[in-house]
Nucleic acid binder design. Structure first.
Lengths: 153, 153
DNA sequence: TATTGTTATACTCTATAACTATA
DNA sequence: TATAGTTATAGAGTATAACAATA
């Protein structure tokens, strides 16, 4: 007669831990960014654009891992508030060259401060060294397998 | 004149790391469980029920962090394949007492093996000690704040 | 009056398909 | 013929609202 398995706490599953870490962190950063009129997804867009030469919407979408059709509305919102400019790329007029404005850069700076503070609250229960290890472990797990091409998906 | 910020890799953001860790892990575990006819969300249900006394759908839903209306379809599927029984709780006939069958337990055992193997592939790039630290760090971050009630949300 | 399970509905998010303009 | 951006549509997933049975 096989021994019945002991009760498994759902919280033991790595999937549960990672999922709820994501939910918690998103809730924290969304709340921190809300006063600026953006959420954590929008912040990702700013992050991709800041300090870089103008790029096409599709390039930005690839860096974010979203579809190009999803990118349209994201840029729409930033363009409407004067944080991003869209203009046809002179070298290939099918493309939009999107670029952060001064206003967009100022928004990024405020957003970054709010985002970093929210990250800090999320990581507060951990020793700083452990927090660093956590970040590094996630980077390692997500890094492209060694010995193969580094192509983006 | 303020120094322009350097380009930020989106991959530096903790939110990016956690989100994509979740996506990667879910893809791995879903693929590993697919031959059994379940996905990682279904596996969570099995995990909650295994080795425990019969509980109401609402209790199970609370443990999983999903709505009670979402629970209905999850249990429907398991009941249809004879993995879970639903019967009115004699003490409170508003409730369904849901319980794993022998068949459900056998399914859980196979699913657990597949799930653990998928977790292992996810964590493969890490030293075993680092993998343990990662799990522990996530537990710590998600643990209820000390000195307060441990109520579920 | 409140609670459990259920159903129907709505909402969010994102991708797919189709169109346009360029190449 | 292929590609970038756009729009409309559809799908997955999950929550909210309303209802029946029970407490």
């Amino acid at each position: 007669m096989p021994t019945p398995p002991p009760p498994m706490e759902p919280h033991d599953a790595l999937g549960y831990l990672v999922k709820h870490a994501h939910l918690r962190l998103t809730a924290l950063t969304d709340a921190a960014l809300a006063p600026l009129g953006i959420d954590s997804k929008d912040f990702g867009v700013l992050r991709v654009l800041v300090g870089r030469a103008p790029m096409s919407q599709q390039e930005a979408a690839a860096k974010l891992g979203v579809d190009r059709t999803t990118m349209v509305a994201l840029i729409d919102a930033f363009e409407a508030r004067g944080a991003v400019t869209r203009r046809p790329d002179p070298n290939d007029r099918r493309r939009n060259a999107i670029e952060l404005t001064e206003r967009g850069l100022a928004l990024y700076r405020k957003a970054d401060a709010a985002y970093v503070a929210a990250e800090g609250r999320f990581l507060a229960p951990l020793d700083p060294a452990v927090a660093t290890q956590l970040r590094q472990a996630l980077r390692t797990v997500l890094a492209p397998p060694e010995g193969r091409d580094r192509d983006e998906r």
